[in-house]
Amino acid sequence: MFTTFIDLFNFEGFWDYFPDLMRGAAISLQLTFCVMLIALPLGLLLALAKIGRSRILRIAASFYIEVVRGTPCLLQLFYIYFVLPAFGIRFDPFMAGVIGLSINYSAYLAEVYRAGIVAIPHGQVEAAKALGMSRRKMLRLIILPQAIRVVVPPLGNYCISLFKDTSLVSIVTVRELIFTGQIISSTNFQYFTVFTIIGAIYLFFSYPAALLVRYLEKRMAIGARRPVVVASDIAPVATVEGTAKS
């Protein structure tokens, strides 16, 4: 017997579990939103600590970033949800998910910010210093506004990747999309139908978001071309900072 793709679907009871799926999607979106709300500023603070002048903060930030990036996100979630209660620290599943993902993403975002900041030509720092700006003013008025242009597209991509990674918190019983799918399919056994619909839901949100990021990338690239144009103006005689000392 020849079965078509459509024949594989079994929509029996669809309207019974569809609201559950929508609730799951809402949880996934909420997680994404909450985690970004924490990880975006936390990542920036970590990046500033890592490039800052305080040795202690530098070491602390590096340690945090390396430990978080060097261990699986799943392990971090397990730790928060299953290990910490042994020390009397208890979170409900959603909170545990938010904390775990925030810790994870802040470390990755810190590296994105840092890369954006160090990409600013050293001449900008020199010019700001020569005008009598303090480090803080230089950062706020000169460095960060330029770094933002560089980091917006990668930050957007991390946002999308986070939306998909919220599926990880199903492991600590957060009723997001995947966990909801597991519950539904374990009772009606329509694995193909349920998980295909879930896949479509993920795609429904992440694909337009990816288009948006691509659009931002193009817009930012026009802005980012500015310093490059400057550089090509001076290319014939100028040399890289530090090699032209006389």
């Binding site: 242009r149 500015r226 001076i234």
Partner: peptide, 11 residues
Amino acid sequence: MVFQSFNLFPH
């Protein structure tokens, strides 16, 4: 101070 490479703020 004025620099060889201008160092204007591009933004």
